[in-house]
Nucleic acid binder design. Structure first.
Length: 725
DNA sequence: TTGTTCCAGCTTTTT
DNA sequence: GCTGGAACAA
């Protein structure tokens, strides 16, 4: 191998910091990669470096991401760069890789060979049923909350058996449910998402030989979006890299926006103490946005405490100022945005370069309506994905029961879908017998029929169902995967069911079912299968693990609408950041907790840094929310962006608005407070508290404080006697 | 079995 | 104020 030429070809297109990261010797590496600083580039080139320069085989590389999309992109880019097939390289999501490990070593993981992956919807159903069956009041113990509790425990690596019995009703009940839930999953061979991670961790932890094998195999371990890892994911990474100094992580503490679902930003800090010989490299040169956009983003994020410290810069000039528009109401806001988009398109811009970003999904409607009336094509991200659709899940449930009769969740899903005269009563009986004798629902149903304990009608209906599933199973034997799927779709009665559904909905469902057959036909078995698993089971796992981004085939030039969360990692020439109002963004629930507030601020930072050329920020003076008219104050984040980078837009040509409307007041931007956000203070009467926000100047300056004992209060600084703690 | 009515809930999302 | 789910009546 000609090291000289390959070396150059891999790193000569990089900047100094990137080059340093890519070519560093094997050691724990922490790459703090700001938005738009080329983090994927660094990862891809690092992998290429390992292979071409360090001489590793692709088998020695492990790369972990959070989304299938990111994994796919990384694999593709490695292949392009090296001009090889990276087909057999372990690049995947935490969940995907965990799944692969569990399939390979099902026995050691104490799982049945045919275990199935549940998505969160399946999981919730199981829990709902469980709560009912234990006669627990589901209004006092909402299944969602139970699910949240169980997943939170698993994310922390805690099993039910690790938890101490406690007198506390909440914990006691949750523990009882957790235990019962584990039993159900074990009996049915079901594994939820959190379980994949937890079990993969336990698998390596408890099997020394396996651990050693994988530690030796993976000479280099790369992690993307490290700030989003949770406790168990990080623990798993540490196991794999124990004593090897080969963990290469890329992340950005300023873009950590998933704390609410268990991501531990602390992992970034812990990394440094766990690996004392690590090296940190900051990527701060940004290749995406203009100087003004970056400076605004920097100024905003500086308001957060405990950052690792990073400041983006660009050498491509200041560009336009950020535009701020104060809308009269949410209608006006949408009108303004859509007008600007129209202008952009008239001036020759592409719609797909434009994004409208909002905090919550509910906000999309206003924009959709206005876009629709102007005939502007648009696309809303989020919502149900292909494999999450009801009709698809039903068909998959048939396939699952066919593959494994004892999959209770799927059994229950389809036993009376379409309706075949098996009512609640019959199902209850089946459940009862199942519980009493620790049988699966299928076995229990067979027993009930055998013992003649059902009415003739119910018994017949049940027999029909059982023999339908069995018959389809026999018939499917030896057939191609897509033929099996086709068989289910055509013979389960689902098509007839949806034909009856009125409107276009039913038609769409039938089309989706046909699309499912297509998906099965195109399913690349070899691509996924290293394990000796049936093609059908592999397809089912694929369906659970990849929710199915079927949106890719939509090539029309569309304006993009999405939440700030889904915008992470993307970029657009023209960005509208809308609804910058207290209570909306930052969201109401975050306003009395500094940590959550900081996460909201990071979210805002993510939003700003999506923009390449121009950024519009809007807020409304009045907004209908949950049916009530609200008059929200401008978001505090607006004040945190220095005024010098902002240009306020006031022209309202063509905007029809009611008469008698108060002109928007000049918002005061960029004032400096006496107190720091998050400052702990004490008040003679109210006791101790934390400063949450500030506004006004001089004698008018007010601070909002969250007092430990009396809650939120606004205080005039000129009156309140506050002591800094 | 189906259609109606009532009622709670209401950030963010991937796997 | 809208939605989805559950309870209820016919």
């Amino acid at each position: 191998m000609n090291t000289n030429t390959t070396t150059t070809s891999i790193i000569d297109s990089l900047n100094d910091a990137q080059r340093l990261a890519v070519s560093a010797p094997s050691q724990p590496m922490l790459i703090l990669a700001g938005a738009g600083s080329g983090k994927t580039r660094v990862l891809v080139h690092r992998i290429a470096w390992q292979i071409q320069v360090e001489g590793l085989s692709i088998h020695n590389i492990l790369a972990v991401t959070f989304t299938n999309k990111a994994a796919k992109e990384m694999r593709g880019r490695v292949e392009d760069l090296l001009n090889i097939s990276a087909h057999s390289m372990w690049i995947g999501t935490f969940h995907g890789l965990a799944h692969r490990l569990l399939r390979r070593h099902a026995k050691q993981a104490k799982l049945p060979d045919t275990f199935q992956v549940m998505d969160s919807d399946d999981q919730l159903r199981v829990i709902k049923r469980l709560v009912k069956s234990l006669n627990i009041d589901d209004s006092k113990w909402p299944p969602k909350q139970v699910m949240w509790f169980i997943n939170a425990q698993k994310d922390e690596g805690i099993r039910a058996r690790h938890m101490v019995e406690s007198g506390d009703v909440y914990l006691r009940t949750m523990l009882q449910l957790y235990k019962a839930y584990e039993e159900i999953c074990n009996r049915s061979g079901l594994v939820d998402f959190a379980e994949l991670l937890l079990r993969a961790h336990e698998l390596l932890r408890d099997n020394e030989d396996l651990l050693e094998f994988y530690q030796n195999r993976f000479k280099q371990v790369h992690v993307d979006e490290f700030q989003d890892t949770n406790t168990i994911q990080y623990a798993w990474l540490r196991l794999l890299t124990e004593g090897k100094d080969n963990l290469f992580v890329v992340g950005d503490d300023d873009q950590s926006i998933y704390g609410w679902r268990g991501a531990k930003i602390e992992n970034l800090h812990d990394f440094q103490s766990h690996y004392p010989n690590h090296q940190v490299i900051k990527l701060e040169q940004n290749y995406r946005s203009t100087g003004n956009i970056l400076k605004s983003a920097n100024a905003l994020i500086e308001k957060n405490d405990g950052r690792m410290g990073k400041s983006l810069w660009t050498d491509s000039g200041d560009g336009e100022l950020i535009s701020l528009y104060t809308a009269f109401n949410e209608q006006d806001e949408a009108y303004f945005v859509v007008e600007k988009i129209r202008k952009w398109v008239n001036d020759g811009g592409l719609r797909q370069d434009v994004a409208i970003l909002y905090r919550s999904n509910a906000q999309s409607r206003q924009f959709e309506e206005k876009l629709m009336t102007t005939g502007t094509p648009y696309r809303v991200y989020g919502g149900l994905r292909f494999f999450e659709r009801m009709e698809i899940k039903n068909a998959l449930a048939y396939l699952r029961v066919m593959s494994n009769h004892h999959d209770d969740a799927s059994f229950e899903r389809v036993i009376n879908t379409p309706t075949r005269g098996i009512g609640v009563k019959t199902i209850d009986d089946i459940r009862l017998v199942a519980r009493e004798n620790e049988l699966s629902l299928w076995q229990s149903a067979v027993e009930l029929i055998k013992q003649n304990r059902l009415s003739a009608r119910a018994s017949n209906a049940l027999k029909t169902f059982l023999s339908l599933v069995k018959g389809l199973g026999d018939e499917a034997e030896g057939k191609e995967l897509y033929e099996k799927v086709k068989l289910i779709v055509e013979r389960s009665g689902l098509i007839e069911l949806y034909k009856k559904e009125k409107g276009e909905k039913g038609e769409a469902r039938i089309e989706n079912l046909e699309e499912l057959v297509n998906a099965a036909r195109q399913f690349d078995f070899d691509d996924e299968n290293e394990e000796n698993l049936s093609e059908l089971d592999m397809f089912l796992a694929h369906a659970a693990l990849e929710s199915g981004d079927m949106q890719g085939d939509d090539y029309e030039d569309c304006v993009q609408l999405m939440t700030l969360h889904s915008a992470k990692g993307l970029e657009f020439k023209l960005v509208f950041l809308v609804g910058l109002e207290e209570g909306l963004f930052p969201s109401q629930q975050s306003t009395n907790d500094i940590a959550r507030l900081e996460e909201e601020r990071r979210l805002c930072y993510v939003g700003i840094t999506r923009a390449m050329q121009q950024l519009y920020i809007t807020h409304a003076e009045s907004r209908r929310l949950y049916g009530k008219e609200t008059y929200p104050r401008p978001s505090r984040f607006l004040k945190e962006i220095p005024a010098e980078f902002i240009q306020e837009i006031r022209i309202r040509a063509n905007v029809s608005r009611p008469v008698n409307v108060v002109k928007p007041k000049k918002s005061s931007i960029g004032q400096v407070g006496t107190y720091k956000l998050g400052q702990r203070v004490s008040h003679v009467k109210f006791g101790e508290g934390v400063v949450l926000q500030m506004e006004g100047e001089g004698a008018q300056e007010r601070v909002q404080i969250n007092f430990r004992d009396v809650g939120l209060k606004w205080l005039m600084l000129s009156y309140a006697k506050l002591d800094v703690l």
